[in-house]
Simulated assay, not measured.
Amino acid sequence: MTNTNDHDGGAPPRAGVEQVQRIGSWKVTMWLPLDSTSGNPREIRIEPHEAGDPQEVARGITTTVLRQIDTAAFAEEVGSLAKLAHSGQQAVESFRRELASLPKGVSDEYLAVLSALYVRFVNAGRRAPAQDLELWTGTKQATLKGHLRAARQRGFLTKVEGKPGGQLTDKAVETLRGINVEEVRQP
């Protein structure tokens, strides 16, 4: 079983968990998206295995092959991961509600929280912190980049030339102290 973020052709990337089983001359791939609340696969793909018997492949997929697909083992293995992903999604939704409770618009409070979250992602070594911000805030990356630019211009976040990064300024720390931490929890 592996975590995947692969995709076909021009389709957008899909985050999920997949497991591959070999049944005779067939490769069976089961996939479950990370936002799923069950452990059962959402997709099952059956294709000839690279080392499969050409004669068996020529006969096609039989009911014998279909009966051997072990979705129960997949669900058992993935069930705890699905629960973890679901709880993670609940944390994101809770953060979004709490972020929405801040003063409307691009307020100082919003910029301070956004800057703190951004710095947290950068310090955690995230390669694309703007993507993480998009997930956590529900705001498009282009808009978030503008908000981060505003945070730097208003003195909440320092600038790092040519790459993601920066540090919270004293102004940001003071603004964050004025926000009830119970209201806005960071991931």
Rank of each mutant, 00 (worst) to 15 (best):
T62K: 06
R177T: 08
R154S: 06
G52E: 00
I69Q: 04
L84S: 04
T169N: 01
Y110T: 09
A172C: 06
R149W: 08
L157Y: 04
L81P: 06
D70C: 12
P13I: 02
T63H: 13
D6W: 10
V184G: 09
S107G: 10
L81V: 04
R154F: 03
L99W: 01
P164I: 05
L111C: 11
V78E: 06
T63P: 10
F156N: 02
I44L: 03
R67G: 01
V57I: 15
S80L: 14
L135H: 08
R126L: 13
T37Q: 11
T63W: 15
V113A: 02
A58Y: 08
W26Q: 05
T64V: 10
F156S: 00
I61P: 09
F121M: 11
P12Y: 04
G165F: 01
L34T: 15
P103D: 14
T143V: 11
K140G: 12
G79Y: 00
A72Y: 03
D6T: 15
V65E: 05
E109F: 02
S38E: 09
E18S: 14
F121H: 02
A82E: 09
P187M: 03
V65Q: 00
Y110D: 00
G162A: 00
W31R: 13
A100V: 08
W26S: 04
A172S: 05
W26A: 02
P33E: 02
A142K: 08
L32A: 08
P13H: 14
P187L: 12
E98F: 02
L102Y: 00
G166E: 10
E174K: 12
F156E: 00
V184T: 07
A82F: 06
P129M: 09
L99H: 02
A72G: 12
P54N: 04
P13K: 06
M1P: 14
R152L: 03
L66T: 03
T143S: 07
